[in-house]
Design a protein around this nucleic acid. Sequence first.
DNA 1: TCATTGATTGGCCGATCGGTCGATTTCAAG
DNA 2: CTTGAAATCGACCGATCGGCCAATCAATGA
Lengths: 225, 225
Amino acid sequence: MPNDLAPAESASHVHPLLRVLIVEDDPVMQLGLEQFLDDCDSLEVIGRAEDGYAAITLALELEPDLVVMDIGLPQLDGIAATQQIKQKSPDMRVVVLTSHMDDVEIVAALASGADAYCIKGASLEQLAVAVSCARTGAAYLDPQIARRVFNHLQCTHSSAPVVPLSPRELDVLKLIVEGKSNPEIASELFLSISTVKTHLRGIMNKLSVDDRVQAAVAALRNGLV
Amino acid sequence: MPNDLAPAESASHVHPLLRVLIVEDDPVMQLGLEQFLDDCDSLEVIGRAEDGYAAITLALELEPDLVVMDIGLPQLDGIAATQQIKQKSPDMRVVVLTSHMDDVEIVAALASGADAYCIKGASLEQLAVAVSCARTGAAYLDPQIARRVFNHLQCTHSSAPVVPLSPRELDVLKLIVEGKSNPEIASELFLSISTVKTHLRGIMNKLSVDDRVQAAVAALRNGLV
DNA sequence: TCATTGATTGGCCGATCGGTCGATTTCAAG
DNA sequence: CTTGAAATCGACCGATCGGCCAATCAATGA
């Protein structure tokens, strides 16, 4: 029986109830959330907040295991609230629930420490799955945004140097990206300015660019740094 | 509706059985996976593959709803296989299951189109949750890597312009990032070179940098482009 | 109304840059 | 041993850059 391979935590029955704090300014939405979450037999709603400041206060006071956080909140928005909560209680999980789908807001939310990102209007089943993920520390991203988030990742993706720069050229390139001038690079690498220029020429040739600015941009975009 | 958070069962009544293809070169691991997955009453294992090429062939032939994909495969690795499968069948879900935790590999896997990323050695319950996420198109990231992935996001993170550049300055900055020289920028924006230089000075002041290279780098790093 | 801000332009000058020649040394591979 | 790539240096020159000065005009808001 393969299910015995599953270590310690064999799901919701072993754990005590997951204590949940709901942060939502819309009364109707808040009621609906509470109804749904309270119906789940593995968790209990222990508090509600209508704005960001109340959320932080309540989170520190009640110490819930998980916070369901709206983003569009009066006074202090959900992203800032998440940031502060996560800073003070890193192990407290935060499920962000919002109707906004801007890339910037999504990224900001995830960078602020949110564990899951759900879209309002999606099925309640998905919210339940998101909570399941978050409770273990795993990340959940709504189907509508998952691809978009991962596309934002490609900027870092590299590892396979498209252009084979020599080690020394890489040294120079790094300093160029740091904004150093040729004389500065020369003194930092204990080279003459002429040598730096030679390497720079090699870099620009291999990268097929015309100046150091494009070289720096190419270096960043291709993750050569 | 039943609000059981245990994900493996939650969808079983509404959806037909989820047809799963297992790709794993280790025979023991493959057997264990099949045992566990087949035990879940909401899905059935319809095929197995031991290498990347077989995975692609079988995926196109059997048209499973979901593929559980190992990364370390002989001949063609799981990332390349995922990429090809996703290219031909975008709606086919892929759960990546591996023991590697390099950032580059994780990012590569997600960029290749994987819907979920699980770490071998984690509980089977987590795999079940990952499958639940992936089946709806949502993303799942193992707790051990979730934070790391989102930290990679910060490169793009901006939204709240740390530095408020004027619209015109942004125009100039964009062209600088494209490697344009001042004269080129001037003619492209129908400005005089002097104006471009003025804006550039403003940009460099606001970004607290000393030259156009650092301005370009700052623009990329802060996502002002 | 007056002040501020942003966009616009001009000139001057020294420093730096990028291109184009050249050169030597070392080290590893053929 | 010879070839080649990489790294190291030099000189020249025109173009560009960046800092500093000052100015006009429109729109926005106090």
